[in-house]
């Protein structure tokens, strides 16, 4: 995929109801590779925090002898962060309100992550 195609994919993710923003993040250093988000979302913070969470999740699945994580979803009572693995070390990350269409968002992100690979 080209950078333009990445942005098109991110815009489609951001079009899902309740999604505040979508990013492609490098899990190694927590930096934003590409992004489409509302102004209120601090994407640099999201990238760093998502990378930290993904690393923690990887340690947890490794400790459980369950292999490498392909997805990680953090759901709170006000919102959610969804992360889907792309080609290492990239992860597709989205932040959504808790009234968002999380099921559709999950499937869409998985589709895009497959294409990214």
């Amino acid at each position: 995929m080209t950078i333009d195609q990445w942005h098109a994919a991110l815009r489609e993710v951001t079009g899902v109801t309740g999604v505040l923003g979508a990013l492609i993040v490098s899990a190694e250093d927590g930096l934003v590779v590409a992004e489409t988000a509302m102004e209120e979302l601090a994407t640099a913070d999201v990238a760093a925090l998502a990378a930290a969470l993904v690393m923690r999740v990887a340690r947890c699945t490794s400790a459980m002898d369950a292999g490498l994580p392909q997805t990680a979803y953090l759901v709170g009572d006000r919102g959610a962060l969804l992360a889907v693995a792309g080609p290492a070390p990239l992860w597709l990350v989205a932040v959504a309100r808790n009234d968002g269409e999380l099921g559709r968002l999950r499937l869409l992100m998985r589709d895009f992550a497959d294409v990214l690979r």
């Binding site: 913070d45 999201v46 925090l49 998502a50 930290a52 969470l53 923690r56 999740v57 947890c60 699945t61 459980m64 369950a66 292999g67 490498l68 994580p69 392909q70 997805t71 990680a72 979803y73 953090l74 759901v75 709170g76 009572d77 006000r78 919102g79 959610a80 962060l81 932040v95 808790n98």
Partner: peptide, 25 residues
């Protein structure tokens, strides 16, 4: 998870779901 939820204003953590090729956790 609590730190991420606090800093991104996601509220109290309900759960974290992890999927691997073989498992859902």
């Amino acid at each position: 998870a609590a730190r991420v939820a606090r800093m991104l204003d996601l509220g109290t953590v309900r759960h974290v779901v992890m999927e691997t090729a073989d498992a859902k956790i």
